[in-house]
Every structure is written in structure tokens, then in C-alpha cells.
């Protein structure tokens, strides 16, 4: 997680993430990041081998920062909800937020970052470690939901953790085709998977 880094390193990564919100990574220069963060060139090269490494961190953490918001939302839901039905409704709401049209860009950034990690071992190591942490977090949440009797015990928590991430990212398959599926029909299917498979014991 970003909070584990040295404040200077963290500040550089955060500034690069801010720039990534409005520019493709190829257009971002070290000068822009230094200006925005107010950090010196010397410090940048103290914390990173080169400018590309800083951008790799930014791409990986930009996405995981957003996944961490979902993880936190699930965490709050587990703490606050009182009944299986509350839980089911809450899970559907959080899922809706992660699948919203505004998240299309995030999905694309993620796929591009993964593609980059395939040919860049340094980035792959970084992304692999972060991905492991995210899947572990979802796995813990799923296990906790099972313990409360809200998550289906028929499912391996880790498989459930990969499933929710897989359909969120994999929907990118619909992002470059001439036609697109209807969002409401997509939610209808995803809601049914949540209801009948992930939280099966709740409805039965």
C-alpha cells in the first residue's frame, strides 16, 4: 500500500497519479511531476532508478488505490449491516459503483498497465505484489462474510475474490467493439450471480 512508502516517494507517486487522471502516461514528463510535487530532481533519482520506474509505480498504484476504495466499502458494509438482506443490497450497490460507465477509463488503464507488465519484468514484479495484496484483501472479506453466514460456504474465498475482479476488468472485452451491451442487462446478470452464487445461503 502507498502509505508504506517514504513521504517523498509517496508524494512523487501521488503527483504522477494526478497527472495520469488527465494525460496518457506517454505524455507525462519528469518536469511536470517535479513541478507538481515541488520535489527536486535529485530526490526523484534517489527513490527511483529512472523516471519510467516512477511511472510504473503510478500506474500500478493508481488502480490499486481505487480497488482499495471498494475493499474499504466492503469492510464498512461487513461492520455496519445488520441482516443478510442489508448485506446483499450493500454488495449490489458497491458492485454497481465499480461497474459504472465512469469506471470504463479505469478498466482501460488497468488493461494497458497489465499489457505493459507482460513485457517489463520490473513492473510485473511490482504489479504482481500489489495484485497479491488486493486478492488477499478480497479473500479475507469473503471469508469474513462466510463466517457471518452471509457469503456462500460452497465457494472457495480466493476463487470468489478472483471472480469479482475478473468480471470487473474483463468487461473491457465490450469496450472496443462497435456495439455495446446494455448496462441494465449487465447489472441484472451480475446481481443474479451475487444473489444466487456468492451470497447463496442468504436467499435460500
Amino acid at each position: 500500500m502507498l502509505s508504506a512508502f517514504h513521504p517523498t516517494k509517496k508524494s512523487l507517486i501521488k503527483s504522477a497519479i494526478v497527472l495520469l487522471d488527465s494525460h496518457p502516461s506517454s505524455e507525462i514528463t519528469s518536469e511536470q511531476v517535479l513541478e507538481l510535487s515541488g520535489i527536486s530532481k535529485g530526490s526523484l533519482y534517489h527513490h527511483f532508478d529512472d523516471f519510467s520506474e516512477l511511472m510504473e509505480y503510478a500506474l500500478v498504484y493508481m488502480f490499486s488505490r481505487y480497488v482499495d476504495q471498494s475493499i474499504e466499502a466492503f469492510n464498512q458494509l461487513l461492520i455496519n449491516c445488520k441482516s443478510p438482506n442489508d448485506f446483499l443490497t450493500g454488495v449490489k450497490e458497491i458492485t454497481r459503483a465499480t461497474q459504472s460507465p465512469a469506471m470504463r477509463n479505469m478498466r482501460i488503464v488497468r488493461i494497458n498497465a497489465i499489457a505493459q507488465a507482460i513485457t517489463n519484468q520490473r513492473m510485473r514484479n511490482l504489479m504482481g505484489a500489489e495484485q497479491g495484496r488486493l486478492t488477499d484483501s478480497f479473500t479475507d472479506l469473503f471469508r469474513e462474510a462466510q463466517e457471518k453466514g452471509w457469503g456462500s460456504k460452497k465457494i472457495d474465498p480466493r476463487a470468489g475474490a478472483v471472480l469479482v475482479q475478473a468480471y470487473t476488468i474483463g468487461r473491457v472485452i465490450d469496450d472496443f467493439t462497435p456495439e455495446h451491451i446494455e448496462m441494465e442487462r449487465w447489472f441484472q446478470l451480475v446481481d443474479l450471480v451475487i444473489e444466487r452464487v456468492l451470497c447463496a445461503e442468504v436467499s435460500s
Binding site: G128, T135, A166, Y167, V172, I173, L192
Partner: peptide, 26 residues
């Protein structure tokens, strides 16, 4: 009740999206 196009994208998305599992250490 389900939209066949949504089913199609969903099944493919599981296959494509499980790349997150290939990247992870476990």
C-alpha cells in the same frame, strides 16, 4: 430472463479478467 449479449460478455470477461490471478504470487 437474461440478455444473451450480457451472458456472452460475462463469460468472456471471466476468462480475460482471470489474468489478475496469473499475475498474483498465489
Amino acid at each position: 430472463d437474461l440478455d444473451p449479449m450480457a451472458v456472452s460478455v460475462f463469460l468472456q470477461s471471466l476468462n480475460i479478467g482471470s489474468v489478475v490471478d496469473i499475475l498474483a504470487p498465489t
